[in-house]
Amino acid sequence: MRRIINYPPSPGLALLLGAAPFVAVGLAYLAASDARLAVDAADKLMPGVSAFYAQMSRLMTRVDPVVGQPLFWFDTWCSLARLLAGIGVSALIGIVCGVLIGFIPWLRAAFEPMIFALSLIPPLAVLPILFIAFGLGETSKLVLIVFGIAPFIVRDVALAVTAIPREQIIKAQTLGASTWQMIVDVVLPQALPRLIESVRLSLGSAWLFVIAAEAITAEGGLGYRIFLVRRYLAMDVILPYVVWITLLAFLLDFALRKLSAAAFPWTRLREA
């Protein structure tokens, strides 16, 4: 009898095992939904597959007269635009500030405590301030996302920069590199893979802030729609939207992972 830690499943079996909980949750939902619908055919809390299909095909295909396109795609576009803008700005701030703070001692001494303090403030607590300062439009939403994830990315990138072996920096200096050349040729290329990693880790929080901001005020967006139809207990909209958001998050994460592997092949090399 071997120890259980010495029984790895075969790749095919591992895939099957990974899929099993999803299937189990789906089946459990269908069973519960059927049971409730048998009692009350008009039950709204756990709609069946047909109700999902009817509602979603309406949202995906029927052009809404106000926004001039199907609501589902309009919401998706609104939320993704906010999310990507927020992540893009945060990544830019993260790499610039992270490299400078991590590499230049004076800047580190001056700004590291500040960035740390900023990262401790719960972003949703300052949301009212953002609404007051930047209005109820897109600016305040963007600032909320940036405020929420940029300090974390800056700290993470700065940490990665300080983790570059001191020997490499000394070696670069003995090869005649200036500070600028070290930043461009030594520090930045080694910080970029970490930037992508920390953006991947921040995706969850970024979605949180998008949904939260949309829940309070917006003209459209996945979070806006969910909170709008909540009043009518429209689970046939809410549940597919949640699944769609999850899928989008997964696809973004997957794309970032592939980008990292393609752009920085040296991070995953071993002696051949």
């Binding site: 072996p165 020997e167 000394i170 070696k171 670069a172 200096q173 003995t174 090869l175 005649g176 030594v186």
Partner: peptide, 15 residues
């Protein structure tokens, strides 16, 4: 450190 003194460490000497 300047370019008139080259160095090779035990580890981490290359990029």
């Amino acid at each position: 450190p300047t370019a008139d003194r080259g160095v090779v460490f035990q580890r981490y000497s290359v990029f």
